[in-house]
């Protein structure tokens, strides 16, 4: 049986963990703000930077686009069929369109896109960045006259934001088209009524919340895995994988954004 640590030792460890937790969030906010400032700076879009940015945009988006489009189409199709069949069974088919648009387009697809891009692009890129830091490449870049935030972090973050927004737009378009096809078939007579239903859902407030949610999802997915660099720890969490810590923070932020958007939409 392991000996019980003294009270002073456990208190200091708790204080150390708390300090590390706060420091980690501060690091994300601070560096994230720097990157956002850099993103709005014209010097970040010089020709040399544009090539790097284009490369990252392509690498972040192109490999994910076909796979995620097919995956989201399949998931959307299943959900559409379930919702339509259920609403028909209970005689509530008039609410099917609104229900589908609200669940798929407003809630599920942006969340899926954020998690997909996080797992497939930003978390591997974050690991690369942490490896570069540990190898001292950032200091070398400083010494060579470069700016690691501008040259290494900003292209990755920008590419992630772009990937999230593009995948969300494509998947929402596919979901809307599949919903129409499932309800009306390959005919155009229902387009006016369908458009009207979409318009009813996308009130100005809902549209604003949807856009802000997608934007904050993309920022969370881009900044947290790439910017967060947890310090080396001693104690019980010493062996915890850094990727899990990043994922935990990312999930917490995504959950918070989702809850806030739900509160904004429905309260």
């Amino acid at each position: 049986m392991a000996p019980i640590p003294p009270i002073s030792a456990s208190t200091s460890r708790w204080a150390r963990e708390w300090t590390g937790w706060v420091r980690g969030w501060w690091q994300i906010i601070h560096v994230g703000a720097q990157i956002l400032v850099l993103a709005m700076s014209p010097s970040s879009y010089r020709k040399s930077q544009r090539i790097v940015m284009a490369r990252n945009i392509y690498l972040a988006t192109a490999p994910l686009l076909p796979g995620f489009t097919v995956l989201s189409a399949l998931i959307s199709l299943i959900i559409i069929r379930i919702v339509i069949a259920t609403t028909l069974t209970y005689g509530l088919s008039q609410y099917a369109l609104e229900l589908l648009i609200r669940t798929l387009v407003l809630e599920l697809l942006p969340l899926s896109v954020a998690l997909f891009v996080a797992v497939r692009y930003t978390m591997p890129q974050g690991k690369n960045v942490r490896d570069m830091r540990s190898r001292g490449e950032f200091e070398a870049l400083w010494r060579a006259g470069g700016d690691p935030a501008r040259d290494e972090l900003l292209p990755r973050v920008g590419a992630s934001v772009f990937a999230v927004v593009l995948l969300a737009a494509v998947s929402c378009f596919v979901a809307l088209a599949l919903t129409y096809l499932n309800v009306y078939g390959f005919r155009t007579w229902g387009a006016a009524a369908y458009t009207r239903s979409v318009g009813q859902v996308f009130s100005p407030v809902v549209t604003l919340i949807f856009c802000l949610k997608t934007l904050f999802f993309s920022l969370a997915v881009s900044l947290i895995p790439i910017v967060f660099n947890p310090p080396k720890e001693e104690g019980d969490f010493k062996g915890m994988n850094v990727e899990i810590k990043v994922l935990a923070r990312l999930f917490a932020v995504i959950l918070l954004i989702e809850v806030v958007s739900l509160v904004g939409n429905y309260y």
Partner: peptide
């Protein structure tokens, strides 16, 4: 590379513009 990146950006711009126009039409 640049052409592909431009195409992706163009696709995003088209989708965003189309979404805005569609929502405006849907809202009457």
């Amino acid at each position: 590379l640049e052409l592909k990146a431009r195409l992706l950006i163009l696709l995003l711009v088209l989708l965003l513009l189309g979404s805005v126009v569609y929502v405006l039409v849907a809202r009457g």
